[in-house]
């Protein structure tokens, strides 16, 4: 078992606390089946094509506490077999950006990892990411079927007002809703993100990991991804929870198989 990064500095009134979904991502990414896949895809030595030996860029959207991105950065050698992994994150919640940045930096230092932690930027999904630059994409979306929060309040709620040193209850509720409410079928945010994935992934080695719950209709989601084109693949590579339960979670790996 690889160590879980510390998030003891994070204020969980404003930032999503690591939960079963976060841990499923950690377990899946460090499982032998996934490390085998990733090592083969990103190992500089096994690839003759020169472009494949450059450092992989890992992007996580919606980092929250940063526990998943920190885990990848700290354990990059075990996961990818490389000393030069780059990490980048985004979150719509500016409190999460600051908290996650600290989580990632601390985890890299404590693990003596050689990973390069780039920034956690405040943004909407991956809209500010340069096209076709991402090698590994990770997304733990707001997947609960619940009405989306009212974004009109975002600017006011996402920062501390000058006169206050703490957030209000209303503010905290809004920030929490951002982390779980996914609209119809819990898929409104995920569908927007899926639409961006083919544009941000690197063409030859890009791979995405997206978490879904049973109510998201994962079989339908995977079928739709395969309709992007004949080269696209979508497979479940990790799961947790009881089959009959509402909270059944799974991780879908999305990648394209370019014939070479």
């Amino acid at each position: 078992m690889l160590p879980t990064p510390s998030t003891s500095h994070v204020n969980f009134d404003r930032v999503y606390e690591p939960a079963e979904d976060s841990y499923l991502l950690l377990d899946t990414l460090s499982a032998p089946s996934e490390t085998g896949f990733l090592r083969q895809r990103f190992n500089a030595l096994s690839r003759l094509d020169h472009t494949n030996s450059s450092p992989p860029l890992v992007l996580e959207v919606g980092v929250g506490s940063g526990v998943v991105l920190a885990f990848i950065a700290a354990n990059a050698e075990s996961i990818f077999g490389r000393h030069d992994v780059l990490t980048l994150g985004t979150d719509i919640n500016s409190f999460a950006c600051r908290a996650a940045s600290q989580t990632v930096q601390s985890a890299v230092q404590e693990s003596h990892s050689h990973s390069i932690a780039l920034d956690i930027v405040n943004g909407d999904l991956a809209s500010c990411v340069r096209p076709h630059t991402v090698d590994v994409f990770v997304f733990n979306p707001p997947y609960v079927p619940a009405e989306l929060p009212d974004f009109a309040q975002h600017a006011a709620f996402s920062t501390l007002s000058k006169s206050d040193s703490s957030t209000t209850f209303e503010q905290d509720s809004y920030l929490l809703e951002l982390s779980y409410a996914g609209g119809v079928d819990g898929m409104e945010v995920t569908n927007r993100m899926l639409g961006q994935i083919p544009h941000i992934l690197g063409p030859s080695r890009g791979v995405a990991y997206v978490l879904l719950c049973a109510q998201n209709k994962p079989e339908e989601v995977k079928m739709n991804i395969r309709l992007w084109g004949p080269e696209w693949r979508a497979e479940t590579v990790g799961s947790s929870g009881k089959l009959a339960g509402w909270e059944k979670l799974q991780i879908v790996r999305i990648w394209s198989e370019v014939s070479s």
Binding site: T90, I92, S94, C97, R98, S101, D119, I120, V121, N122, G123, D124, S127, C128, F151, A152, H154, A155, S158
Partner: peptide, 8 residues
């Protein structure tokens, strides 16, 4: 921290 959120 860069803010890339767009106004409505």
């Amino acid at each position: 921290v860069g803010n890339f959120l767009l106004p409505g």
